[in-house]
Every structure is written in C-alpha cells, then in structure tokens.
Amino acid sequence: MLTCSRVTRTFGAVEALRDVSLSVAEGERVALLGHNGAGKSTLMKTILALIPATSGEIRVAGAAPGDRAAREATAYLPENAAFHPALTGREQIALYLRLRGEPASKAGSLLERVGLEQAADRRIGTYSKGMRQRVGLAQALIGRPRLMVLDEPTSGLDPVSRREFYAILADLARDGTAILLSSHALTEVEARTDRIAILSKGRLVANDTLANLRREAGLPIHIQVAARPETVGDVARRLDGTRVNGVRVDLTCAHGDKLSRLGQIAGLGGMIEDVEVIPPSLEDLYTHFSRRADQ
C-alpha cells in the first residue's frame, strides 16, 4: 500500500531524512518511533506530498504521493491537529465528508465513534485538547481509507480513549487498511502494532517485528527469583545472582541461555517461592537501536 525507497529530505544543512526505505502492507500496523526531531513528521509529510522529498521514491496505493488517487486512498492526522474555532465539530466533519464526496449526514455517526456526540454542536474553539484530537481522528476515519498516516494520534488522549482508539485501528487493519503511526508512548504501541520502525537522526535504524528485534538486539533477559529469608543467601550463591533484598535474587542471561537457567532454578525446588522472566522491553530495544546507530 505504501512503499518508500531511499527517501532523503534535507532542510538546508539539516538532513531530516536519509535513505529511508520503509513499506506498509495492507492490514499492517507499523509504529514509527524516534527521538524529537528524528524525522517522523517529515517522513509522513513527504508521504502526503506536503513537502517534496529531496531524493528517493514514494508510492501510495500505486500512485505518486499527492496524486488524486493517492489522496483519495489516504487519511492523515497531523501532529497537533487544528480546526477552525468558529465551526462546530459536526460542521467541521461535514465539510471534510463533502470534500471526500460523502454525505454530510454521516458526521453524527463518526463523532459518536470517537465519543464526541455530546459536544458535536459546540464550537471547536471551546473543545479541550483531547477533544480536538478526537475531531482529527473522526476525519481520518472518513470513507474507509486504504492507508492511514497518523502523527502522534494518541497525544492528549486519556487512557480509556487510547484503548478505544487502538480498538478502532484493529478493526480497520482487519479490513485491510495499512496504518503508519508515530508515537512516543512505547508501551502502548508494543502490544498493539505489528511492526516497529525506529528513526534516529533521519535514518531508519530498525524495522521489524518486536520478536525479531528482540532476537536481533540480543539484549539480556532478566529473571527475578523470589526465595525465603532463610534461603535467599544460599539461592544467590548457587545461581550466581545478585541479592537485591531479603527475599529476592536477580539474574540476567542471554536469550539462548534462558531455558537452561530456568532449569537450574527449577532444580532448587523448595528453596524458592516464585520466579518471573522479564524480556527486554521496547524501551530497552529502542535505547539499544538508537545508541547503536550513534556509533
């Protein structure tokens, strides 16, 4: 649905994007991560033809970005979505519907879908930040887009609306919509997207499923063993771990050693109470890939 090949964009001396190649297939949800100024918004804007790429090629639904066919297939939610303060939510969505050739009467159900039915007839100027963000989401849902480009879609949303938002995305992906979204909230994209792409200083430093990124990074796995006060010293010695308090011993091990380590722990039998395995979090992976790129 979307392919970017070797996209570069420079602003004077600033290289906002360098040789970025990324694609999103139908029904796939890709999370675009990266530090402030990494180039996430710039990449999205080049995909939407809001700014031209300096070099490289982009195809959206088989068309060049900015072509009518590409625009008809694509929905966009800009970062800090803004609307005319004098219009009501319903009027604003009605305008966007008509611009996409849809009947204005659908505005009510779209606003309901994002939980704005109560405020639909109030002016957007009176909306809170999260409510404005929801207007942005409502317009992005118009007319079953085949590609959605969402720039920090959950910024300003409360936890419940975030969950509802990802539920909507899951529905859309199931129906074949390709979704590219950027975020700084790593924990929420961890479970709710199919692939992770990490930009660092304009370069794509990672682009794979979470499981594959874990394997590739080879970050140590943490194992927390809970013992009893009278056995904790013995457990720490036998497992060669670090005693953190009166009952707990921490171990780290490589991905490949995980099972043998767990076997060892199981061998201790009644000396331990519980064991917990903690894989590297997306935050750890993110730090790893961003750092690696710096070297």
Partner: peptide, 13 residues
Amino acid sequence: ERGTLPLILTYPV
C-alpha cells in the same frame, strides 16, 4: 497560522 492548511491539502481537492 492556525495550522489548518496541511490537513486540507491532503484531501482530494
């Protein structure tokens, strides 16, 4: 100034 232009320019108009 309001930041409403980019979004409308991505519409098929």
